[in-house]
Design a protein around this nucleic acid. Sequence first.
DNA 1: TCGGGCCCTGACGCAGGGTCAAGGTCAAGC
DNA 2: GCTTGACCTTGACCCTGCGTCAGGGCCCGA
Lengths: 254, 254
Amino acid sequence: MLTIGQVAEYLGVTVRAIRHYHQRGLLPEPERDASGYRRYGADMVVQLVRIRTLSDAGVPLARIEELMGASPAEFAASVAAIDADLKDQMAELRRRRRAIAELSSGDRLFVPDEVVVLLERLAEIGLSAEAMRTERDSWILLAAQHPDQVPGWAEQKRKLFENPAFQRMYLTADEAAAWDRDDPRLEALADEVNAFGGLQSPDEGAEPILALDALVAVTLMAAQTGRPVPAWERLIELCKSRATDVRARPEQPR
Amino acid sequence: MLTIGQVAEYLGVTVRAIRHYHQRGLLPEPERDASGYRRYGADMVVQLVRIRTLSDAGVPLARIEELMGASPAEFAASVAAIDADLKDQMAELRRRRRAIAELSSGDRLFVPDEVVVLLERLAEIGLSAEAMRTERDSWILLAAQHPDQVPGWAEQKRKLFENPAFQRMYLTADEAAAWDRDDPRLEALADEVNAFGGLQSPDEGAEPILALDALVAVTLMAAQTGRPVPAWERLIELCKSRATDVRARPEQPR
DNA sequence: TCGGGCCCTGACGCAGGGTCAAGGTCAAGC
DNA sequence: GCTTGACCTTGACCCTGCGTCAGGGCCCGA
């Protein structure tokens, strides 16, 4: 008759694991000797081998419990179910690896490719680092709620930057973040923004992005990240009063 | 400013998960309103998106914690490590699927193929169900300690059964389990066993299996599974006394 | 003012054990 | 006979990533 430690060493498992199986009711408690030690006969060892064989194959203990007393037919059915489980897990791992691979570049973190392209363009034309971060965060937020539309929107916004006048306007708006709320230059900037306000996307059927929309989104973002920009808030007010005749402006959500 | 429930719905995560991230220190606690409710700004939402993106990709929370403040280089290194982890997990799953597949037949449970073949042969020649179980359990035990040698041993034992006289002897020994300890037929049976005691394996270099060894193993097994067989014990004594001139018998381990 | 739906904290639960902690036993050497 | 070290015992807390109460407070519409 073997002690728990001898059985554990014989099978290459830990003492703790065997006791765990007793606790779970997977393996009946063996008889104790005079000093209370568990004493194992060969039959217990055989049961343990069966448990370990299944466990090593990745069968959860709860299922092993069912299997130990199952008929061959039930056993075969359970084995099929377990295999299907494993297949699902492998599919999940493949999905994760793809997801991980898409994070491989630190630059393209957390946003779709089209946004990455747009952000690179913004960096090219010399947008400030602060504005870059706000821009990226805005897209992250937007992508959380509209993952399907964001690639199209980003593409449309990128196309706007093919126009040098739009570039200049955007950079000026960037600089304007440092202006006072009542800076007189804001009036002229509002006129510039307004000039692009009605710009339509070249793709038919897609919802057009207005320059003002983009500005509003970024400003809202900035306002909510603890860095409110008074000059931008004023700028939006000015734009809105001019934009009413371009199209009816719906309430900005939230 | 959003409540925790609104943020959760916006991102498609549970409230509990967000609170969990706070507890883990993954996400800083936001400010509370007058009634103690958490209030989230867009910056928090952005952080949450980043956490979820990584988490959905299967990155453990502990690692996400490191990653949130990491440089692009550190980030890339960690991503590579995570991917390597995933590869390992996939290999493990493949191994488990193979192991599961080998259990697919209820008959061949927990023993190598060679033993399955042997057991089928034993069933063919009409071994009792009780003896079959003991035989199988003996092999399970043996395989736990000598996984590499068991296929060869099983093959050798199977070859012994090509001899009709060995078959008869084995079946008689099976019946003998029901005999008294002092049954006179045991003497003749011991002579039969002894006749095969020196049988050498046809494979050179492989350790020979003696008929007596097989009998001893099975008897020890039976003795330890709570079904001791007195007639077998006596039979072994008789065999041992005859076998001393066949070869020097080492002490039986344990 | 009442009900239903939010929110809060705290605690337990899961699988499969790992890892102490505090104490009893056993065999060997002195 | 006494000590030492290697076993054994039970019990309890630790890990992951939250789910799921339990017991209370807050808010809003009727």
